[in-house]
């Protein structure tokens, strides 16, 4: 049995306008299917990237795996336990605004470490991760006084400081400028290699998935079905243009998602 088992996940939204349905659609009338029979399994320590066109339900799937969304059919089993609610051991990094804006970086970092009684241990832990994401000197800043990239790094540090078993990343590079995007992507890859924990990331950047992932999942347009799941064992650091296998895989994915020509 794999570390994370996702079994026959079906999810639909209520929509009162949906009076008709396609012949092969088993959804109840009045509902719109978002996820269609998702069946996946991931190994411990893997970096999984879930790719798909916008609106395909990939964020919904991540919310289900993380336990935030419980209104679905099917089962998510992590480490032999059924997921019924969010766990403080599995930290979610949000697309944006994940830091509480009325707390400084330091106070935000403390959120996940409230159960550590020894202040010295706690402070050391916070400093370790602030240094890891190179935010030294910004501990007492409020999120609003940080740039978008620094906010993302602070949120990563807050998540990592918990030493979570699993890290969920929901389009973590959205809204960043290109250079910051590449830098933080590299940091996440390095962090993954350093801590070796399971990470599940949702993204719509195919290049990000190819550079980062140990396993790529591709979802179809709504209702989201699994189009492809592939294990990637290309050597790192990866370069899509220099590695024939990677660039061929990229073209294959583009074709699969309906883009036939890539400059």
């Amino acid at each position: 049995m794999s570390y994370i088992e996702i079994k026959n996940i079906n999810k639909s939204h209520y929509n009162k306008r949906n009076k008709k349905r396609a012949p092969d659609d088993s959804t109840k009338i009045g509902f719109i299917q978002v996820l269609d029979n998702i069946d996946l399994s991931f190994e411990e320590g893997e970096m999984v990237c879930i790719l798909g066109p916008s609106g395909c339900g990939k964020s919904t799937l991540l919310n289900i795996i993380a336990g935030f969304d419980t209104a679905y059919d099917g089962e998510v089993i992590i480490n032999d336990k059924k997921v019924k609610h969010a766990s403080s051991n599995h930290i979610f990094v949000f697309q944006q605004n994940g830091l509480l804006p009325w707390m400084t970086v330091w106070e935000n970092m403390e959120l996940g470490l409230r159960n550590i009684q020894d202040t010295e241990v706690k402070n050391e832990r916070i400093m370790e991760y602030i240094e890891l994401v190179e935010l030294n000197g910004f501990e007492d800043h409020l999120p609003s006084s940080l740039s978008g990239g620094m906010q993302r790094r602070a949120e990563l540090a807050r998540a990592l400081a918990v030493k979570p078993d699993i890290l969920y990343l929901d389009e973590p590079f959205t809204g960043l400028d290109y250079l910051t995007h590449l830098k933080i992507r590299e940091e996440v890859v390095n962090i993954h290699e350093y801590i070796g924990k399971t990470m599940i990331m949702v993204t719509h950047f195919i290049e990000d998935a190819l550079i980062m992932a140990d396993r790529i999942i591709i979802l179809s347009e709504r209702p989201g079905r699994v189009l492809m799941t592939r294990k990637l064992d290309f050597p790192r650091p990866r370069n899509i243009n220099k590695d024939r296998g990677l660039s061929e895989l990229r073209d294959e994915i583009f074709l699969m998602l309906g883009v036939s020509y890539v400059a």
């Binding site: 993380a66 935030f68 403080s88 979610f92 994940g98 509480l100 009325w102 707390m103 409230r114």
Partner: peptide, 24 residues
């Protein structure tokens, strides 16, 4: 999202009020 953060970090009811709702 702030409530999701609170769930993720296991806030109890008092913490939801004092650390989230009131400052927000």
């Amino acid at each position: 999202i702030y409530f999701q953060v609170a769930t993720n970090f296991n806030f109890n009811r008092t913490e939801i009020i004092s650390k989230l709702i009131i400052p927000a």
